[in-house]
Design a binder for these strands. Structure first.
Length: 507
RNA sequence: GCCGCGGUAGUAUAGCUCGGCCAAGUAUGCGGGCCUUUCGAGCCCGUGACCCGGGUUCAAAUCCCGGCCGCGGCACCA
């Protein structure tokens, strides 16, 4: 049948065909294998650094899905490496603050370093199931044997031997590198890192004190072991994490199979590149320790940490919306600040009060016969205004770049002719402004104003722009977000006796 | 090198499971206009994409094969 014939036929029987409804678009796609009321997700950060935009993705998505399906959301600190990823005592709380700021509430909270006995017990069970062995070969020898598909000869020792030697590991009989517990996997697995992966290793906590448990333990579970055990014990049904973990799922599966556990549904999404922002933990740590005077710690607005973004005036709702839009795709995403700013602006515009701010002041004398009263609304949709009285011969400042026009309208005050260093009042009829496209500009009295410094992050630099704002800015407090008219959105950062410091958010 | 995942406008995302409602939707960006006592917001118009090549089919962004490109992993890190 040709296409034309089909169309003809279709027209004939049109009424009999009900077109399928277009699926309704939800912000989040449905979660595979999800049953309402039974979804359990978790966010599992290492408390060695605060949350940045990249970590916010698993945090927000895990939380959001748990809520969507009326399930549970668990916060779990994964702090089982006091040697190379040393947890920081203060950071446990900083992370919790970051999450609360994002409006993420967790139903349960765990810290892995406080669960060591659990890990030891499960390890022993695993050994009894012949699923693990103590490897006492030299590290290089071990690696070589695994590569050859054989493994350390102790692999074949009886369970009793394994239990005995694992006990010795826990008791501190071995020093660093002298013994590890390995999970028995496929010694022919194409990915060598999957072959008999390490479940426990010795860390000399006398040298590398753990911030919570000090030197109490020397046999520490690796990430893959601790994650597997906890994901099972805590009843996690869905794991949402970055794709750097895809291979870990393969490794963990062996442990789950040994133990007869069911592996959760795992979703791995791509990496988040935040253009123009530093997100690397090590890089940020290096910068703040090397140049403590130049950077404001974790909160520096030049960093992609949540704290940095907060200090810039980015709202948590904007971050959440951005992450939900990005979703759970496996591809990497390049997020730009412009994108985040667009969302932020939309939210901020409705509530940020307006303030007049002049940064390249040009002084003018007002020429008028009678005193003028200006009324500028604190927000375009607000009845509330700020009132200033301008008397004849008062001096006001406008931006130099605004002074090119022959006629200007000073916002809230009226229309003026520009005559040399004088501004002659010519009435306040708005219609001539529309008719002649007269620029409507912001202004401040030269004598009565407030010193303002605007901090503008620009790559690794922090530019400072000084200027004056109307007195109305004194009504606000630290962390308030304002819109400087015809300039951009800012966040009040610091108020001192002679100056207000604000951080520039975006236009 | 080996193993795995993925490629829709500048960016992000929808559609791909079940081929035709897709001459590809949405947001942002960019250009223009309207409105407006802010160059903001809002409204309107425009701009711009299915990685490439084969195959299957009346019909392919969607299925199959090959190539190319990108990303992740290859630790006694998480």
């Amino acid at each position: 049948m040709t296409y034309e014939e089909q169309v003809k036929l279709f027209e004939q029987y049109k009424e009999l065909v009900t077109p399928p409804e277009r699926k309704e678009k939800e912000l989040l796609p449905p979660l595979p294998n999800a049953v309402e009321g039974r979804v359990v997700t978790r966010f599992a950060p290492n408390p060695d650094f605060v949350i940045h935009l990249g970590n916010a993705r698993p945090a927000i998505l895990s939380h959001e899905y748990a809520r969507k399906y009326k399930g549970r959301f668990i916060l779990r600190f994964e702090d089982t490496d006091p040697r190379t990823k040393t947890p920081i005592k203060e950071v446990y709380d900083l992370i919790k603050e970051d999450l609360k700021w994002l409006d993420i509430r967790w139903d349960e909270e765990y810290i892995q370093s406080l669960r060591m006995e659990v890990f030891y017990e499960i390890a022993k069970e695993l050994i009894k199931k012949n699923g693990a062995y103590v490897d006492t070969c030299e590290l290089e020898e071990s690696k070589k044997l695994i590569k050859e598909g054989i493994g350390c000869p102790t692999r074949e020792n009886p369970v009793s031997w394994q239990l005995e030697h694992f006990e010795k590991m826990i008791e501190g009989y071995y020093g660093e590198g002298e013994a590890v517990l390995r999970v028995k996997t496929d010694l022919k697995h194409p990915d060598i890192s999957v072959r008999d992966w390490v479940a426990f290793r010795i860390i000399d906590t006398g040298k590398h004190l753990h911030p919570l448990v000090g030197d109490k333990y020397v046999a520490w579970p690796t990430y893959n072991f601790a994650v597997s055990v906890d994901d099972h014990l805590m009843g996690i049904t869905h794991i949402l994490r970055g794709k750097e973990h895809t291979q870990n799922a393969t490794k963990q599966m062996f442990l789950f199979n040994h133990m007869g556990w069911k592996y959760p549904t795992a979703i791995h999404f791509g990496r988040v590149h935040f253009e123009g922002f530093i997100m690397s933990k090590s890089k940020i740590r290096e910068l703040i320790s090397k140049e403590p005077n130049r950077f404001w710690g974790y909160e520096d607005p030049r960093f992609g940490t949540l704290r940095g973004l907060r200090r810039r005036g980015i709202l948590p709702q904007a971050i959440k919306q951005l992450i939900l839009e990005v979703g759970i795709k496996g591809t990497d995403t390049r997020i730009t600040y412009t994108n985040l700013a667009a969302i932020n602006r939309k939210i901020l515009d409705e509530k940020a009060h307006r303030i007049m701010f002049v940064y390249e002041p040009q002084e003018y004398t007002i020429v008028t016969d009678v005193p003028l009263e200006s009324k500028v609304p604190i927000h375009p949709s607000s009845e509330k205004t700020r009132v200033y009285t301008i008397k004849p011969r008062d001096k006001i400042c406008i931006n130099k770049s605004d002074s090119n026009s022959k006629v200007v309208r000073l916002l809230g005050l009226g229309n003026f002719m520009v005559e040399g260093d004088k501004l002659r009042y010519i009435g306040s009829d708005i219609s001539i402004v529309k008719e002649h496209r007269v620029p409507i500009i912001q202004w401040v009295p030269c004598t009565q104003n407030v010193n303002v410094s605007v901090y503008r992050p620009s790559g690794l630099d922090l530019l400072v722009q000084k200027g004056y704002s109307e007195l109305g800015i004194l009504d606000y407090k630290v962390d308030d977000k304002l819109q400087f008219i015809r300039y951009g959105f800012v966040r009040v950062d610091q108020i001192t006796d002679n100056e207000i410091k604000v951080v520039f958010a975006h236009e």
